[in-house]
Design a binder for these strands. Structure first.
Lengths: 346, 346
DNA sequence: TTGTAGGCGTTATCAG
DNA sequence: CTGATAACGCCTACAA
């Protein structure tokens, strides 16, 4: 690879002049600038960023540390959000994957330190509390989809509660009054938040919360299937179900279809996550809440960049990003009320 | 951050001795080594890899350039495979995302060059032919899930044909003789390969290929649904369907269920991709072929490392990695043959 | 507007 | 076994 000196020699100037041209210093005669540019082009010169970093202490690299990138389809969105924003500022992302192992996490931070990264994005693949690896705070740090118990670090998570609220409100606005929720265990912040939103919406519409309409279990299709089945066996079947995940919703789909209920004519369904693969291609396509993974990734990098530019913009605290409603075809008005009927399989 | 000289001073030795200790040179007295190690520890010394790189020309970084990481759930597996293998060798991955834009691809390569990466992994999110960005060949390069028309570059793709063969063979071994295939357009190497395998298996079992059993369209649930519907309308309904993707298979699921066919009692189904989210949690869980994304990522990095160690191991050519069969519950023997029945909805 | 000296933190070479 | 000196490619400070 050609160096700055090679270019200087070919252009017949000192290497410092080349340096000025490369760095867009205004103090170079235009004629000379052209000459240098031509020489650089001819030699296919590329500045060596490692060398530059040694002088400037700016590596133009962030570390992206995640717990488990492979098992969830969301990782890509966070990464892309982060990557795109970084690319705009000519920054790059160095990938680390810890598998959730604290020892590996420490090694990652160590490695990031050795490479002089200018900041760290620490991302988890589901919304949860984390313990920071040692030394993590020696660098500018932003948390994505997670938080520390003391929230002493800057971070971003989805606004679960508002999401649950919006999902439930949609159903209420359509006229539903008997709305079930199939939730996951409330030990998950996502489940707890979405449930809060559900409650709040009911309250706002003065619909009493009926505990037997709220069912709790796992995040998966099976859970949705079983709970939906139970819901369908009730004396008075709900006219709508808010599911805490798209997977739960699709499990519910299976149960409803099996029992001969039509979606959305008989029962409306709302999911959560907007997993393209599932939600957009279900029959009927699923109305759901999107989690702003892309935006969280992008937001994190933005914070890092701003903190780098403005020393005092470092700060702490948790930011919540809105979950947009994705309207598809699984929600409609409730069926017109008939004479109370004895429950039977149609 | 402490430097090698700080450590030397604290330990009361020359900085070169510290360097020796850091680099595990055997030519240091043990007593001095301990002293240096203690000093390094006390100062929390970390070698500056940029500085090291300047001397050694070894950045210990590979570039991972992908076209579109966010829209497919597979990206994470490739990345993790690559990342893990790299991590074993103390190498890191620098992420680039091109969005498929050739101009951006060039910028990525340029950027990779500036940062002195030791190799490039160029990955696409579905199996296809690519044109290499300019200058890409100035670096050791490995293609993942794609290939160049002239296959002058080293690369790795799934063995689609063998996968299609194994899927079909499973069905044949179970006793099926009337096996439909719902495929995607054969312009996709994946579709073409899987179809080849289907043909080969039939041939091997001396089952004549019936063109009306082979249906072609897109990769999605809708396609599977429509084609399955058409298949069910045939005079003689197939006893098994090999679907070129899990999404197609799940669309077929919907159609079969709607028409009252049971899986696998009436009709067996095999998919392709092993998308955990879809296949493992379908009702019934879907038997399918796994695409070795993780292995491809890992393989790519391994090649790069070996090429770095052995100049002459660079070479070209396409490697095909096996697609393992994932047995779940959607395949069984064909139903016992009855009197030919008039086709009717059950 | 241009050029020279010095140093960023390492490792390589070669004496001692 | 240990240490002085040079070099990697670039940028900063200062001088011309």
């Amino acid at each position: 690879m050609a160096t700055i000196k090679d270019v200087a020699e070919l252009a017949g100037v000192s290497f410092k002049t080349v340096s000025r041209v490369i760095n867009r210093s205004p103090h170079v005669r235009d004629e000379i600038r052209q000459k240098v540019l031509r020489a650089a082009d001819a030699l296919e010169y590329r500045p060596n960023l490692h060398a530059r970093h040694m002088r400037t202490q700016r590596s133009k690299v962030f570390a992206f540390i995640s717990d488990d990138i492979a098992t969830t389809p969301f990782a890509g969105q966070i990464i892309q959000g982060a990557q795109l924003k970084a690319w705009q500022r000519e920054m790059l992302l160095l990938m680390f994957n810890t598998g959730g192992d604290p020892a590996v996490e420490e090694d990652c931070v160590k490695s990031a330190l050795e490479r002089g990264v200018e900041g760290v994005i620490f991302a988890t693949m589901y919304h949860r509390a984390v313990k920071l690896p040692k030394d993590a705070l020696r660098l500018p740090l932003v948390l994505v989809d997670c938080f520390t118990r003391d929230s002493a670090v800057k971070g971003v998570v989805p606004d679960e509660s508002n999401g649950g609220f919006a999902a439930t409100r949609l159903l209420l606005e359509k006229g539903h009054r008997r709305i079930a929720m199939i939730n996951a265990d409330k030990k998950y912040p996502a489940a707890a938040g979405r449930y809060q939103g559900y409650q709040k919406a009911l309250r706002q519409f003065r619909v009493p919360l009926e505990p037997e309409l709220v069912r709790t279990g796992g995040w998966w299709q099976d859970d949705g299937y079983e709970h939906a089945l139970a819901l369908l066996k009730m004396q008075q079947v709900p006219t709508a179900i808010f599911c805490a995940s798209d997977r739960i919703a699709l499990g519910a789909y299976d149960a409803l279809k099996e029992k001969g209920f039509r979606i959305p004519e008989d029962i409306s369904i709302v999911g959560f996550d907007n997993q393209e693969l599932l939600a957009a291609h279900a029959r009927p396509p699923l109305t759901t809440m999107q989690i702003p993974y892309f935006e969280m990734g992008s937001w994190a990098v933005k914070q890092l960049i701003e903190a780098n530019e403005d020393e005092d913009k470092t700060g702490a605290g948790l930011t919540k990003l809105e979950c947009p409603l994705i309207v598809r075809a699984s929600v409609d008005s409730p069926p017109i009320k008939r004479e109370p009927q004895s429950k039977k399989k149609r």
